[in-house]
Computed example of a mutant assay.
Amino acid sequence: MIAVIKQSATKDQLDGLVDWIEGRGFKTNVSQGDNETIVGIIGDTTQIDPFLLESMDIVERVQRVTEPFKKANRKFHPEDTVVDCGHGVSIGGGSFQVIAGPCSVEGENLLRIARAVKAAGATMLRGGAYKPRTSPYSYQGMGPHGLDLLMEAGGELDMPVVTEVMDPRDVALFVDKGVDVMQIGARNSQNFALLREVGKTRVPVLLKRGFAMTIDELLMAAEYVMSEGNPNVILCERGIRTFETRTRNTFDVNAIPVLHHLSHLPVVGDPSHATGYTRYVRPIAYAACAAGADGLEIEVHDRPSEAWSDGAQALTPAQFADAMRRLALIREAACAETE
Rank of each mutant, 00 (worst) to 15 (best):
L173K: 10
P257L: 10
R238Y: 09
N188P: 03
V203D: 06
H261Q: 14
S227N: 14
V203R: 11
D252T: 05
G143L: 08
R209C: 05
E156C: 01
E244H: 11
G185E: 08
D252W: 03
D216Y: 08
V198H: 10
D148P: 00
M166K: 02
R187H: 07
M151R: 02
P231I: 10
V181P: 01
L235R: 10
L218I: 09
G199T: 07
E152S: 04
M166Y: 01
E152M: 01
A222L: 04
L219N: 04
D148W: 00
E223Q: 13
N254I: 08
N232A: 15
V225N: 03
E244P: 04
F192S: 12
L194M: 08
G141S: 13
E152W: 00
S227A: 15
G210M: 03
L259H: 05
T250S: 15
G185R: 02
M226F: 05
Q140C: 10
A255P: 11
L173V: 13
K177E: 08
V179P: 01
E197Q: 15
R169A: 15
L219Y: 01
L259I: 06
L149W: 01
P204T: 11
V233E: 11
D180N: 15
R241T: 11
H260Q: 15
L195A: 10
V205T: 06
A212Y: 03
T242E: 06
M182Y: 04
P144W: 05
D180M: 01
G154V: 00
K177P: 03
L206T: 09
E217I: 03
A172K: 13
Q190P: 00
M226N: 06
